[in-house]
């Protein structure tokens, strides 16, 4: 069984790495990773320069007491804060496409009869597909981790301690869980939707609902406002009766918020005095981690069920 899952998983990765669509999205993702570090650094240095410039103007005007440097207490890892948004946006689209392509490709190429006329069980098959998707996501995030760790070397003044590198690593780990949920969603709809375009679009709609609508209902913030990490960390939550009620009811399903909260804490944008290492940050926020895991389990089960109902001989993709 393990051998078959392994064979399927490796095959998945091999084919994916030769697909133009995937490579294009990967290239955009990598470019954004590099760019995000650059933007983080450039904003940081500019803000510091603006602060110094402001001080001299205020001194000229005769002031003597000034507020502290706004970036003084911002942790080094905060230069990666845009990565939260890119994983949230492009990462999720990439993940949906990986999951979607994984099964749509098989349906369109007509190889399923060849596979299932061999001693391959349906659970093994879907296990292989999911393992392949995990490999692909791990591959993408490993490169991203390497790019961000390496690019930080070129930023003057940014020395990351071991604990910070560890936290960055955990951030990519949490990203992996978040992206896996969306790949599973893409896979699920590619199994039971007849039309290829619907199979891609429905997960994107669900993603929009989970990423914009749920947070809007639970926080009262406007949808796009939540794309700015600074806003997410510092905006107060709306207090009306409706929002309290919506939070109690919907917060557990808000996958993107679990991801954002964990990431903000790991990158130190949201501060927790009692937690310093990556593991302790995770353990303090374990409820978000557990809810992410639960959604993965639910989607894994849904995929196994969907494939068990899938008819190989009657499938006509449109």
């Amino acid at each position: 069984m393990a051998k078959i899952i392994f064979t399927l998983a490796i095959n998945e990765l091999k084919i994916l790495l030769r697909e133009k669509t995937f490579l294009l999205l990967l290239a955009i993702f990598m470019a954004m990773t590099f760019f995000s570090v650059y933007i983080g650094w450039s904003t940081r240095t500019t803000i510091f320069a603006i602060y110094r410039e402001s001080l001299s103007i205020l001194r000229e005007a005769g002031m003597s007491k000034f507020p502290p440097d706004p970036v003084l207490n911002v942790p080094a890892l905060a230069v990666f804060n845009n990565m939260i948004v890119y994983i949230f946006l492009i990462g999720a689209l990439l993940a949906i496409v990986i999951g979607h392509r994984s099964f749509i490709r098989e349906r369109k190429s007509g190889v399923l009869p060849l596979i299932f006329s061999r001693p391959v069980g349906r659970k093994e098959y879907i296990g292989g597909k999911m393992a392949g998707i995990m490999l692909a996501l791990a591959f993408v995030l490993a490169i991203t981790f390497a790019v961000s760790a390496l690019s930080s070397l070129f930023i003057p003044g940014l020395r990351m301690s071991f604990a910070e590198i560890e936290k960055l690593f955990f951030f990519y780990g949490v990203s992996f869980l978040y992206l896996f949920v969306f790949s599973l969603l893409g896979l699920l709809f590619s199994i039971f939707m007849r039309a290829e375009s619907m199979a891609l679009l429905v997960p994107i709609i669900i993603w929009v609902a989970l990423s914009f609508v749920l947070p809007e209902l639970t926080t009262g913030q406007n949808p796009v406002a939540l794309l700015n990490p600074v806003n997410i960390a510092q905006s107060p939550q709306a207090q009306g009766q409706f929002f309290v009620w919506a939070r109690n009811l919907l917060a557990p399903f808000s996958i993107s918020q679990h991801f954002t909260v964990l990431s903000l804490h790991l990158l130190g944008i949201e501060k927790q005095t009692e937690a310093s290492g990556g593991l302790s940050v995770l353990s303090v926020n374990f409820q978000h981690l557990i809810l992410l895991m639960i959604s993965i389990f639910i989607f894994v089960a849904a995929n196994i069920f969907a494939l068990s109902k899938y008819s190989i001989t009657r499938d006509k993709i449109v």
Binding site: T43, Y86, L227, N228, S235
Partner: peptide, 24 residues
């Protein structure tokens, strides 16, 4: 989604809640 967000996060005034210049 991304370019407007970049523009937004690069805005110096957006770095501090309530606005950088206000805080100064």
């Amino acid at each position: 989604l991304i370019i407007p967000q970049i523009g937004d996060t690069m805005d110096p005034d957006n770095q501090v809640p309530g606005g950088f210049f206000n805080s100064m």
